[in-house]
């Protein structure tokens, strides 16, 4: 079965998607304070790795990485509401890219499966 990653057009499509997604996240005042001091290039690279993962592309993402990377943010108050906000931006990004409803649901299910790792539960 072809992955969504290939259907969307591989890495080039991810590059377009990551900028759409990251700009939405950075513009959202309910969550952008978590990104105040982060190195933007490094953050964008991580977002790209994350999108590659949820699109079913070749990735090296593990739950352990997610947990470790978000632990300092959980200490600063990262919670379900923030997770939901990011998920909304992901959905909006996919809609803008013209991804079909079925595929969006597939991606959102994958993204949703990271919730416990992201929130250190």
């Amino acid at each position: 079965m072809t992955s969504l990653f290939d259907k969307l057009g591989g890495e080039a499509a991810i590059d377009a998607a990551v900028d759409l997604f990251y700009r939405k996240v950075l513009s959202d005042d309910s969550i952008n304070h978590f990104f105040e001091t982060t190195d933007m290039e490094r953050q964008r690279a991580k977002q790209k790795a994350f999108l590659t993962m949820v699109f079913g592309g070749p990735n090296h993402y593990t739950g352990k990485d997610l947990r470790a990377a978000h632990a300092p943010l959980v200490a600063k108050g990262l919670n379900d509401a923030h997770f939901d906000a990011v998920a909304r931006h992901l959905r909006a990004t996919l809609e803008e890219l013209g991804v079909t409803a079925d595929q969006i649901n597939e991606v959102m299910a994958l993204a949703g499966s990271t919730r416990d790792d992201v929130l250190s539960r």
């Binding site: 900028d19 700009r23 950075l26 513009s27 933007m40 290039e41 964008r44």
Partner: peptide, 12 residues
């Protein structure tokens, strides 16, 4: 300004 430039459409 880096953040702003990115949000206004420049590639990082």
């Amino acid at each position: 300004a880096k953040r702003k430039a990115y949000l206004q459409g420049a590639r990082l």
